[in-house]
Design a protein around this nucleic acid. Structure first.
Lengths: 213, 213
DNA sequence: CACGTTGTCGACCGAACGTTCGGTTTACGG
DNA sequence: CCGTAAACCGAACGTTCGGTCGACAACGTG
């Protein structure tokens, strides 16, 4: 063992924080207890520091929420700009968007979870709700296009099926828990990562239903 | 007009409350702002009375939550006891349960909304979460039966499709708003009530998917 | 080894929280 | 018109809330 790897001479602090690592703790506690149900004292206890230390890194509780929601919204909107979402038939683009949204949801699970539970009690929450409405409208337009193309059944309202399908996708945050292996890591050929397999199931169920054929 | 139907002689109080009518107001505010985000002052303001008046009717904030959650859980479980849920093929029973759950969700929309947002910060919330888990397990078992019957596709895990389909159903609370007409009221023959029509769409999408045929 | 930076702490603040209490108003049967 | 019970109120309780402040320890750099 090298001298530089010796144990810290002071045992008083087990971990030092910066804004990012503190946000990680905050998001975990927010998702467990809900944003309104979490006090700064709760956050401090979970992080192993005092309340005042938290204010050294962030402006306050609502600032932490904003940082978390941005981490969810930015990648969700980014999906709509991908080549697969802008070129091809409406059905292909819709499939791409749905599949990628599942993958983003899994990759940013805690942040998306928080986003989906926002109620609108603060400015930050109302801002997030507004962005969600914009997002939903864009996808609903895409579904409408696919119906007019004749690729989707026309006996159901496009707005309705968009809501139901996204309701199904979003409900994943209620139960999905990642296993130990990271998606990027080496994996035998032909074995798809868990997020992709989940997206397969969502697409299969959405497009073809669960009835046996 | 009978004398007993005369307008109240005093205009100072616009409404008198009992436990039930107070619960109605509380559930509305709880769903708007979230349980943790609602203060007793908020409830008092919404009801047009003072905080202390509320304690004349209920034991406290958590008591109101318990009353609301019971109003959701009892009819949800009652569906599982109905004849359509206990007799016939597993597919028929599953269809019946899904359809009726949609109808109950619409009929008790505010209470079910509250149930689905419970986080587990109090004893009452943990009790509700426990009952929800029991409910999910019962339906998942039914889905497994339907798969073994050969009625549902067997390339997807029954537990997974139960979660996804119920995620879709439960998401209805996020956007569905009842129109003016009540479901029980007179309606021309052949016109199904809104809740039944919504259930039709949910069943169609779940079983046959949204792809055009 | 002095220095500024970074992270932490305990003590504290005013406001808001859920709840309690003693007393007042209202509706109504006798 | 009186008596009573239900409904209500204003004021206050003790606690917890989100947030502030000044001091201090650890550390990399000159």
């Amino acid at each position: 063992m090298l001298a530089s790897m010796a144990a810290p001479q002071s045992a008083r602090r087990v971990q030092r924080y910066d804004t990012a690592s503190l946000l990680q703790v905050a998001v975990r506690v927010f998702t467990e207890r809900g944003y309104d149900g979490t006090s700064m004292e709760d956050l401090a206890r979970a992080a192993g520091v005092t309340k005042s230390s938290i204010y050294h890194h962030v402006d306050g509780k609502e600032h932490l929420l904003r940082l978390a929601l941005e981490r969810a919204l930015n990648p969700l909107f980014a999906v709509l700009e991908e080549p697969g979402a802008t070129k091809g038939t409406a059905l292909d683009r819709l499939e791409h968007v749905l599949r990628r949204e599942v993958e983003v949801l899994v990759a940013e699970l805690p942040h998306v979870t928080l986003l989906l539970r926002v109620r609108g009690n603060t400015d930050t929450e109302r801002w997030a709700l507004q962005r969600r409405r914009e997002f939903d409208a864009l996808v609903a337009a895409l579904a409408g296009e696919a119906v007019r193309e004749g690729a989707l059944r026309d006996d159901l309202d496009p707005a309705l099926i968009t809501r139901l399908v996204f309701g199904m996708i979003n409900s994943v945050v209620e139960w999905y828990r990642p296993d130990g292996a990271r998606d990027g890591e080496d994996r035998p050929d032909g074995v798809r990562p868990p997020a992709a397999r989940l997206a397969d199931a969502v697409l299969a169920l959405s497009l073809d239903g669960l009835r046996a054929r």
